[in-house]
Amino acid sequence: MTRILTLVLLLAVGAAHASDAVVLDTAKSDEITSTLTAQGYEVRRVDVEDGMFEVYAMKDGKKMELYLDAALTVVRAKISN
């Protein structure tokens, strides 16, 4: 009985986290590209990594790796020359 309750709880927690997950489809990729292009980025590639959108882009001659949350807010950026 304890194992069943543990399994049910784990599945419920997993389902709650899954609803927070970002999903990349063509429409979302286009939305990300148009949003960042309007901000001056040249978007090269859009992926999903660690529950965030990962965007490879160029701006002002610099290569950038941007991480966006589900609301398309940049939460982390890596810049290389």
Rank of each mutant, 00 (worst) to 15 (best):
L68Q: 02
E31N: 04
K78G: 14
A38P: 01
V46R: 01
T35R: 11
F53P: 06
L66N: 02
A57L: 03
A12D: 11
A12C: 15
I32E: 01
V74G: 11
L68A: 01
V8P: 03
A38Y: 02
I32T: 03
E54T: 00
S80W: 08
L68S: 01
K78A: 15
M52V: 06
E31G: 00
L36E: 06
T26F: 02
L66R: 00
L36C: 08
A77I: 13
L72Y: 05
A21Y: 09
G14S: 13
I4F: 08
V46K: 00
V55H: 05
A16Q: 14
L9N: 10
L10I: 09
T37E: 12
V48W: 08
V46G: 01
Y41M: 05
I79Y: 05
V48L: 08
V48R: 10
A77W: 01
E54C: 00
G40Q: 06
L72P: 04
L72D: 08
G51Y: 02
R76D: 13
K63H: 15
Y67N: 11
V55D: 05
Y67R: 12
V55M: 07
A21R: 14
V8A: 15
T73E: 14
Y41E: 04
L9K: 07
M1D: 10
R45P: 02
I32Q: 01
E31I: 03
V48D: 11
K62D: 09
T6V: 15
V74C: 10
A21G: 05
K78C: 06
M1I: 07
A71Q: 14
D30F: 02
R76V: 00
I79E: 08
I32V: 11
L68Y: 01
L24G: 03
M64K: 13
A57E: 01
E49V: 01
A15R: 04
I32M: 03
Y41A: 04
S19G: 04
V8I: 15
G61F: 04
V22W: 12
V43N: 05
A15H: 02
E65A: 05
L66D: 01
A27R: 13
S29L: 04
V8K: 11
I32W: 02
E49I: 00
S34E: 15
M64T: 09
T73Y: 03
R44K: 11
G40F: 05
K78E: 15
A15E: 04
D50S: 11
A18Q: 10
V74I: 15
L5G: 04
A38E: 12
V23H: 13
D20K: 10
A21L: 07
T2V: 13
T37S: 13
V75M: 14
A27H: 10
K59N: 05
I32P: 02
R45F: 06
T6M: 12
